[in-house]
């Protein structure tokens, strides 16, 4: 039986992992916040709310529009379609009333950038391959 356990472990890692099942909102460790409302989160990712309550600038990081994690995050956490976000950014960028978020090209880059940029906010998928990085210097925000 004891021999079977590592074997079972190997088998488990071989199983196809469901991609991006759950999403987590992550922030830089020094952001003084443990939880956040969906409304506030929408204002932040919509690039309308630019400051944390302590006055620090918010740095928003997003993946590309067609990235699975971006789509899932947008739909399941923000309850918005990705094209709505893109439109909101376009409206602000091209009319000069706001700026676009920082775009990263991978989940790895996302976790690195959020961990190393003061005031940063982003999101990660909760799958096994990234949970190690998530544990780095990031803080997970509880969304209510």
């Amino acid at each position: 039986m004891k021999r079977l356990i590592p074997l079972l472990g190997i088998l488990l890692t071989l199983l196809p992992l469901p991609q991006a099942i759950a999403q987590e909102v992550v922030v830089h460790q020094k952001v003084h916040q443990e939880e956040i409302s969906r409304n506030t989160l929408r204002a932040i990712f919509g690039m309308r709310l630019l400051k944390w309550p302590d006055g620090r600038a918010i740095k928003v990081f997003v993946l590309q529009d067609d990235h699975t994690t971006h789509i899932t995050f947008s739909k399941s956490i923000l309850h918005m379609f990705p094209y709505q976000l893109r439109r909101a950014w376009d409206r602000q960028v091209y009319s000069g009333t706001g700026q676009s978020p920082n775009e990263v090209s991978s989940l790895k880059e996302m976790s690195e950038k959020v961990a190393s940029t003061p005031g940063a906010i982003g999101y990660l998928s909760h799958s096994i391959e990234h949970q190690f990085e998530t544990k780095l210097d990031l803080k997970v925000l509880h969304v209510w």
Partner: peptide, 14 residues
């Protein structure tokens, strides 16, 4: 066009 945000409450755009 270009925009710059010297402070989180201040933006210049053109």
């Amino acid at each position: 066009g270009a925009s710059i945000r010297p402070l989180s409450d201040l933006q210049f755009s053109a």
